[in-house]
């Protein structure tokens, strides 16, 4: 079978992240490689967090999407290294997150900081104010922290740098 790699990427662009459905798996940066080996299609993905429960669903949804477009035999494998980072999230993905009400990751390093360091200034995704504060480092999913805006008073999720 003649497999067109750009076409496969287009199909992957239609697969959403189950937890943050405005993002595709390509926006999120979890698709690491699409290749054809000995006539067999191979898609390599990487988890965002070790325990991310979305990963199994993502793998299944990729399989379903490829099968629906005529690629039922794709091999989908997982790699851990290099470890996923929010730097791999596309610019389009960051804009989609903000429009969805989730503040996109700020900066390029893990938000570890020093002990008791001031958390980063995260702009409110609703009113763009920088006068926000972290409520909790850990949010509704492993990839998010919980913030609130002191200007518009709305709580919001922040997709933390990782």
């Amino acid at each position: 079978m003649n497999i067109s790699i750009p076409e496969i990427w287009q199909i992957l662009e239609t697969v959403s992240d189950p937890e943050v459905p405005v993002l595709t798996v390509v926006d999120l940066g979890v698709v690491r490689k699409v290749e054809v080996q000995d006539g067999k299609l191979r898609v390599v993905i990487t988890p965002t967090y070790s325990g991310c429960p979305a990963m199994n669903v993502i793998e299944m949804n990729i399989r379903i999407a490829l099968a629906a477009e005529g690629y039922p035999d794709a091999e989908i494998s997982t790699v851990l290294s290099p470890a996923w980072t929010t730097d791999w999230m596309s610019e389009a993905g960051k804009q989609k997150l903000k429009a969805y009400g989730i503040a996109p990751p700020v900066g390029a390093v893990v938000d570890k900081g020093a002990l008791f360091a001031e958390p980063k200034k995260v702009p409110c995704p609703l009113c763009d104010s920088l006068d926000t504060e972290m409520i909790s480092q850990f949010g509704s999913t492993a990839c998010k922290s919980h913030y609130k805006c002191n200007v518009c008073l709305e709580p919001f999720d922040y997709f933390k740098c990782h």
Binding site: S50, G51, C52, P53, F138, A142
Partner: peptide
């Protein structure tokens, strides 16, 4: 509560 269960999820993932 959420933080501790986030820890649990990470550890079980590892």
């Amino acid at each position: 509560d959420i933080a501790i269960t986030n820890f649990a999820l990470d550890l079980i993932g590892q």
